[in-house]
Design a protein around this nucleic acid. Structure first.
Lengths: 204, 204
DNA sequence: CCCTACGTGTCACCAAGTGTCAAGGATGAC
DNA sequence: GTCATCCTTGACACTTGGTGACACGTAGGG
């Protein structure tokens, strides 16, 4: 998907530095943990200054969490592209699955990042903050699909929240099993549980 | 319940300082926002040193989030005290309601704190981190109630996650409405949506 | 009266994050 | 070729969150 050189030369150079920073950060943070590594060390490992690090990432947590940033946009894209008559449980199941499937190419790397995030309170906090943003976006999209007023109806936010709870549960189980359990099966299992609530409103 | 002077004199003195710190912090943070107020200012307003502030609170966020700390323990207490044969949706509805109802005595103060948290990314992140802990605790309790193995079954974590999604949604709506909407009605409305999923497993 | 324990203030220190400015490198006009 | 310009970067200084070490004062117990 990102195989051909995208954008201008300046943009590609910028992307190169960002990748180098991410690479260095994930390598150092994997061993030693989050607190044991300083931003100066990450910057030095990438061959840039501390100041440049903060020109690419808003915070030390950001360099890890942004590794999973694509997931949020992937989810919203998938949800908007789902056919309208599809029941919410099906549409949201594909939405969550799309974000998980997006990491298929780099399984072991993603696993280490997820384990790092779920095992580090500061990173978990930032990750959950991201999820809160995604929830609002998904809720708006769900409301639009069903023609509900997001300001008065409780369903959109709850549906988005349930989907993200499923997402989080899948990541937890996948992380705890060291990648042994099948993400697809976990996703289906989670949605089998929450589907009765997601689809109950359809008759309304 | 905390009407009579509890604990030793030293404990009460400690509580006094903690209350003074919380009071000062909430007062200053309400106007000016979270970033505009420094820990030194909070400590000075409470008449102690910065070092003493950090002997009472682990972080600047903590002084705000800990104001809602009782909610987590209140929830778990309520869930454990619920009769075993009660359907999950009923037990969890009372669980969430108990934590909301616990703030009944200080409505306007709680409202300002909730609005501050939901409107400040750093505070929201810490608050969500707390909720993640609560979720694990509630999931363990749910698993115990139903005799499910929390390591293999998806239901406990999902049920706890749905309940906390309801909790969060109630707080959001209550906060956005400036306290106008009725928390009890919101709670019932949320659980009416998620109940089909919570109770569907009963037959199993 | 002394001794201990505990809470607090002071100071020093580290790391995260930001503003500012000057240097360098690429680009484009003439 | 040269100059002007823009953009990125590094260097430096600074603020703030957070921690460790130590010294001081006070209450209680021998």
């Amino acid at each position: 998907m990102t195989s051909r050189p995208t954008g201008t030369l300046a943009q590609r150079k910028r992307q190169l530095v960002a990748d180098e920073l991410t690479q260095a950060a994930l390598g150092l943070l994997a061993r030693g943990g989050f607190d044991a590594v300083t931003v100066d060390e990450i910057a030095a490992a990438a061959g840039v200054s501390k100041r440049t690090f903060f020109r690419y990432f808003a915070s030390k947590e950001d360099v890890v969490v942004q590794f999973l940033t694509g997931l949020g946009t992937a989810m919203r894209e998938e949800l908007t592209s789902r056919p309208a008559p599809e029941p919410p449980s099906t549409a949201l199941r594909h939405t969550v699955w799309r974000s998980i499937d997006a990491c298929a190419g780099q399984t072991e790397r993603t696993l280490r990042v997820v384990q790092l995030i779920l095992g580090t309170p500061a990173l978990l906090a930032r990750f959950l903050e991201r999820q809160a943003q995604w929830r609002e976006e998904l809720a708006a999209e769900v409301a639009g699909r069903l023609g509900l007023d997001p300001a008065t109806e409780l369903y959109p936010r709850l549906a988005a929240g349930m989907a993200l709870t499923a997402f989080h549960t899948v990541l937890q189980r996948w992380s705890e099993s060291d990648g042994t359990e099948d993400p697809a099966a976990l996703t289906d299992g989670c949605f089998a549980v929450i589907a009765p609530a997601l689809d109950a409103v359809v008759g309304e």
